[in-house]
Amino acid sequence: MSYEQHLDEVTTLITEKYDVADDEAIAMVMRAQADDFFSGHDDDTSICTLDRAHEDARIVFRQYGKTAKTAKTGKGAKGGR
């Protein structure tokens, strides 16, 4: 799949696996992309596979889902302290 298709697949998997709204999943993927999380994928599209999309969705949700939750609730790891 192409780089763009891979990003779409990661976004879709986040919404399906973690019951996240589309706009939140898109924001997570965009933050990961801004942090160059997907830079290797853009350079080598052979790693843009369905298996890799599942792995990337898990990692992106784990790393960037916390940011989305914090931004939504205004609470950080310390419960808003």
Results as ranks from 00 to 15, higher is better:
residue 30 M to P: 00
residue 43 D to E: 15
residue 42 D to G: 00
residue 16 E to N: 15
residue 1 M to C: 00
residue 60 V to S: 06
residue 23 D to C: 09
residue 38 F to P: 06
residue 34 A to C: 09
residue 78 K to R: 11
residue 65 G to H: 03
residue 31 R to T: 03
residue 70 T to H: 12
residue 49 T to G: 02
residue 62 R to A: 13
residue 5 Q to R: 10
residue 12 T to G: 00
residue 3 Y to A: 01
residue 64 Y to M: 07
residue 33 Q to R: 14
residue 68 A to C: 04
residue 38 F to H: 04
residue 71 A to L: 14
residue 53 A to G: 01
residue 77 A to C: 01
residue 71 A to V: 08
residue 33 Q to N: 15
residue 76 G to C: 04
residue 45 T to N: 09
residue 59 I to T: 10
residue 3 Y to I: 01
residue 74 G to I: 08
residue 57 A to G: 03
residue 79 G to W: 04
residue 1 M to K: 04
residue 20 V to G: 05
residue 2 S to H: 08
residue 42 D to W: 10
residue 79 G to K: 06
residue 12 T to C: 07
residue 55 E to A: 14
residue 79 G to P: 04
residue 42 D to I: 10
residue 47 I to S: 05
residue 63 Q to V: 00
residue 7 L to Q: 03
residue 72 K to C: 00
residue 1 M to Y: 01
residue 80 G to Q: 05
residue 3 Y to Q: 00
residue 12 T to R: 15
residue 49 T to Q: 03
residue 53 A to M: 01
residue 18 Y to S: 03
residue 2 S to V: 00
residue 39 S to V: 10
residue 34 A to Y: 12
residue 13 L to T: 07
residue 49 T to M: 01
residue 59 I to K: 11
residue 57 A to D: 04
residue 10 V to L: 07
residue 7 L to S: 01
residue 51 D to M: 09
residue 70 T to A: 15
residue 24 E to G: 08
residue 51 D to W: 06
residue 19 D to R: 11
residue 11 T to R: 13
